[in-house]
Simulated assay, not measured.
Amino acid sequence: MEILDILIIGAGPIGLNCALEAEKNKLTYLIVEKGTIVNSLYNYPLYMRFFSTAEKLEIAEIPFISPAPKPGRQEALEYYQGIARQKNLNINLYEKVLHVNKNEGIFDIETSKAKYRAKNVIISTGFYDIPNLMNIPGEDLSKVKHYYTEPYPYAQQKIVVVGSSNSAVDAALETYRKGAEVTMIIRHSEISKSVKYWVKPDIENRIAEGSIKAHFNSELTAITENSVIFKNENGEITEIENDFVLAMTGYLPDFDFLRNSGIDLLGDCLNPSYHPETMETNVSHLYLAGVVCGGKDTHLWFIENSRIHAEMIVNNILKSTIKNEL
């Protein structure tokens, strides 16, 4: 069996960037992705726009041309999938990595379809695949959605949106404008300060005028077929009629996979252990790239500030290779 220089887990923007950097330095590599190319972006809301401008989303100095100041989901899909196609990157799609084990200096990687061997492994799996569950009665009902794509299914329905981040605010505004009766349940005392600056006044004005109801300092406690139950900061319980719950409570990396790969997870936020200058974890030659580095602090890393990980990792691999050859 061929021993690859690098096996990359995840074909998101940063995984693609790692592959381009490997190819530039004539290292053998393979990307293994459990979905499609930039799978997380594919699952974003259909009309989502990035906070970053196009040039901040570029990889490998390949221009990202967008007619709008902030590119949207479809433009990003075209850009990243176009790069994979034009550069003919080595990618296996719809293949999930199950285990990563290191034996005598070489990684054995088992997937849902095959087995591979590699000198180095880069985990660039993001965090969008596992919802941050509320763990309340009724969360498993079919009316509860942890992913939001478009507003049309919710026209003329009673919607509860849980959260106050960008995803929650977008869902609330879009469903409201398609005729939904929208109620937001928000743990904090205000809309998140991280909400896109051109959207924040819109949601605040809709709440102020009563078009969208908002219960601040409140927490959802139970979901039934026809209602939801929540409590406020004073412990007062309220039940309201409800057709759908959009639980925009965030997402988490696959901590079990990281832990089973030998990576130490530190503190309450389960931050993976890695060297900030090389991105190498406590397992030698096993690297992290992109937003997976943040643990539960999923707001720390995004495309714009983690594009540099690819060059950092490949440079360290090259230095290690030269050192071993001396």
Rank of each mutant, 00 (worst) to 15 (best):
R73T: 03
L270W: 12
T224I: 00
V228T: 05
V161S: 04
N232L: 09
V228Q: 01
T149L: 12
E150I: 01
K231M: 07
S273W: 14
V195S: 06
D202T: 12
G10I: 03
V144A: 04
S261C: 09
D268N: 11
L173Y: 06
F230M: 05
V97P: 02
K296C: 02
K231N: 06
N90Q: 15
N242T: 04
Y251N: 08
M134I: 05
I207C: 06
A11E: 06
Y47L: 09
Y152C: 00
K115L: 00
N315V: 00
S124F: 14
D268L: 10
K87W: 06
L20Y: 10
S273P: 03
I106D: 04
E190K: 15
S189T: 13
E280W: 13
F230W: 13
D5F: 10
I317D: 11
A114Y: 14
H188R: 15
Y116P: 03
E325I: 08
V121E: 07
H146T: 07
G138E: 03
I122V: 13
N88G: 11
L77Y: 12
I203P: 03
P137K: 12
I191W: 09
G72Q: 11
F302D: 05
E304Q: 15
D254A: 02
L93D: 02
H299N: 13
N120P: 04
E225I: 01
E241N: 12
R85D: 04
I130V: 09
V100G: 06
Y287E: 04
E325T: 09
V245Q: 01
I207F: 07
S211C: 03
T149C: 02
K119T: 00
L16I: 12
A54L: 03
D108M: 14
N120G: 02
V182P: 07
G294L: 09
A222H: 15
T221L: 05
T175S: 05
C18N: 07
Y287V: 05
S218Q: 10
L41Y: 15
P63D: 00
P63Y: 02
I122G: 05
E33G: 09
I6Q: 07
G138V: 01
I130W: 08
S167V: 08
V162L: 02
Q157E: 11
S142V: 02
D254I: 06
Y148R: 02
K213C: 01
I240D: 01
T321G: 07
Y116L: 05
M184K: 06
E58V: 08
G15Q: 11
D268P: 03
T125P: 08
E311D: 11
